[in-house]
Design a binder for these strands. Structure first.
Lengths: 128, 128
DNA sequence: TTGCTCCTCACGTCACGTGAGGTGGC
DNA sequence: TTGCTCCTCACGTCACGTGAGGTGGC
C-alpha cells in the first residue's frame, strides 16, 4: 500500500489543478503529509479525502477562509481538541449557512435553465 | 410612464451592485439607453430586462465574454441583423454549452448537499 | 543521457469591492 | 442650504492561470 501520492496523481483523481492544490496549501487549507527527498509533495489518502471535501463544498462556500474555519471545526471535533458542545454548535451553524447557500444556488440554477429554454426557443423560432 | 430609471433603483430591482452594473457597461455588456443632464445613467425597461437576463445566466456562463457573444447572437436575431440560420445555429450552440454547465453545476450542488449532510451528522453525533 | 514530473518565484487575469474626491436635482 | 444619489478615477482583493528557469527519480 503506497499511501503517498504525488500531486499530479492527486490532481487527476480529485479533479483540481496543480496550481489550485498548491494554492490551498499556501493559504493553509491542505498541507501534504510529507515531502520526498527532492521536495516533491506526498499526499496520503486522508489528504486526498480532504481535498475532495473542499472541492465538493466549494460551490456553496462564501470564501476559502470560511471554508477553512468549517474544516477547522470538523478537525477539532474529530481529534477531540476543544469543547465538543461549542465545536458542534459552530460546525452546525456553518453547515446551516452553507445549506442556505445551496438553496440560493439551486434557485439561481433553475432561473438559468428557464432563461436558457427561452433563448433556445428564440433560436429555433427565428431559424424557421 | 417613467421609462428611465436611475442606477440605484435598477440595482435594487435586479439584485446587482452598482459597481457590477457599471462594470458590465465598461466591458460592453449593457449600456444604459440614456444619461441625464448631470451625467446620471438612465435605464429603460429593456435595459433592466437585459441586466436581469445576465444575472440569471451568470451562474452557468463560463465568462462574461462568452456571455456577451451569446447576447450578441440573440440581439442580432431579434433585430434581423445577419444570417438567421447562422445566428440561430450559433445561439443554439451557446445555449447547449450553457445547458451542459447547468448539468455540471447541478451535480456539484448535489455533491455539496451530501457533504454537508455528512458534516451535520458529525456535528450532532459528537455533541452527544 | 533522455523524458517526464515535480519545484519555486512571480507576474497576469477576471470580476468585481472599496474608498477618495467631486457634482446633480428635488 | 441640506441630504441623498449619482459621477469618475484608481487601487485592492480573491482564486487562481501561466510561463520562466531549475531539479529529481525511474
Amino acid at each position: 500500500v503506497t499511501d503517498h501520492h504525488q500531486i499530479g496523481e492527486v490532481a487527476q483523481t480529485v479533479g483540481l489543478s496543480l496550481r489550485t492544490i498548491r494554492y490551498y496549501e499556501e493559504i493553509g487549507l491542505v498541507t501534504p503529509s510529507g515531502r520526498s527527498g527532492g521536495g516533491f509533495r506526498l499526499y496520503t489518502e486522508a489528504d486526498i479525502a480532504r481535498l475532495g471535501l473542499i472541492k465538493d463544498l466549494k460551490p456553496v462556500a462564501s470564501s476559502l477562509e470560511t471554508m477553512g474555519e468549517l474544516l477547522d471545526c470538523a478537525d477539532r471535533l474529530a481529534s477531540g481538541d476543544g469543547d465538543r458542545g461549542e465545536l458542534g454548535r459552530r460546525l452546525g451553524l456553518a453547515v446551516d449557512q452553507a445549506m442556505q447557500r445551496c438553496a440560493q444556488l439551486q434557485t439561481r440554477l433553475d432561473a438559468a435553465r428557464d432563461a436558457l429554454n427561452r433563448l433556445a426557443a428564440v433560436a429555433v423560432e427565428r431559424a424557421r
